[in-house]
Write a protein that binds this DNA or RNA. Structure first.
Lengths: 192, 192
DNA sequence: GATTTTCATAGACAAAATGTCGCTGTCAAT
DNA sequence: ATTGACAGCGACATTTTGTCTATGAAAATC
């Protein structure tokens, strides 16, 4: 799993080992379930000594934190790119929300499982906050155009959006995800 | 923690021990976090022998499953009672959704944490399904009155509701929870 | 009322997992 | 070429786990 001899620089090597640990751990979690994953198993499957593993992470939870942080960061980059594109604020909002819903849909109930479990972690919470900020700011933009209800703050609406869209994890088809986005957006519009 | 001598019937005693195990485990989880909770700790804190604990539950995960099942059952009874009261379908829907949101609000992020983690369990999934069914049926009733959008099935709308309302766990005040319910309901109404 | 059966409890043991220390060998800087 | 830094891992003490068995109290039977 991990190159035995260091062909690259040492820093690059450490990064590669770290990645391998993260991937291996995630594989084990999806295969055997969360509770049965041990440091011993991870080390063996990753092809490194158990003591070495402890040089990288203090325990299984820390590995899962790191894995989840990596996931969130990737998704954040994706969503930030969508948000930064040219166009109407309303359209960009829809694009971002749909992208988030599709991510939730792909990872199914597994991802939700962990994201909830790991909420307590400092860095994960921070990444989640960035996600919330991104939506909040976009909602504030939409508010400028008058296409947003004004009886609830963008902050609270962003919180509503993220939770509502995690429902995509339970849906069977991408069509259903589309409908979910539509419904969620309907909650945001100004009320007569 | 647990009565040493059996003053009650034996069945009653077992139930009491079981409850004590559930409560103790939950206390430990909230105090020290999920990963650090062991069967040894639980047995010690509950005041029973470790081997005895294994007669009740095979591992920590099973205890958490049971705890969560108990929680869901309690909430289900509460919500079912609200649903069965007399009155307009729309009003009962609002009452049920608000009650669910308040439950999510009270347990904060902790409860959500676990409810997600434990989704894989058979019985918990079943209980969650009952919750979904309850909302779905109520939504179908509302549909009869024409106060529900008809481009999405009650099934999917129920899924949307439950997830959107778990956002209450992140909210600071019950006023904010009220607003969340309002927004969520807005997503359900027929679109012009 | 005496007995037998049932079963809750916990002591004890083996196996597994954990966390750490120290030695070995490689990389990088001087 | 020498040396400091550090990745890797063997090995040990400790903790946790899972199970087996003995003890004794409650319930059932006679």
């Amino acid at each position: 799993m991990v190159p035995k001899l260091w062909n690259e620089t040492i820093e690059e090597h450490r990064r590669a080992v770290r990645e391998a640990i993260l991937d291996t751990t995630w594989t084990l979690v999806t295969e055997r379930g969360l509770a049965s994953v041990t440091m011993s198993q991870i080390a063996e499957k990753a092809g490194i000594g158990r003591a070495t593993l402890y040089k990288y992470f203090p325990d299984v939870e820390a590995i899962l934190f790191a894995w989840h942080e990596r996931q969130i960061t990737r998704h954040l980059e994706h969503l930030a790119a969508l948000r930064g594109q040219p166009g109407e604020a309303g359209e960009r909002l829809e694009a971002v929300l749909e992208a988030f819903a599709l991510v939730s849909h792909r990872r199914g109930s597994h991802g939700v499982e962990l994201s909830a479990l790991l909420h307590r972690d400092e860095r994960v919470a921070q990444a989640q906050q960035q996600l919330l900020d991104l939506i909040r700011d976009l909602l504030a933009e939409v508010a400028q155009t008058g296409d947003l209800r004004d009886d609830v703050t963008p902050e609270e609406l962003a919180n509503y959006c993220l939770h509502a869209l995690t429902a995509a994890g339970n849906l069977p088809s991408t069509d259903a995800v589309r409908r979910l986005v539509t419904v969620t957006l309907a909650g945001l519009r100004p009320q007569r």
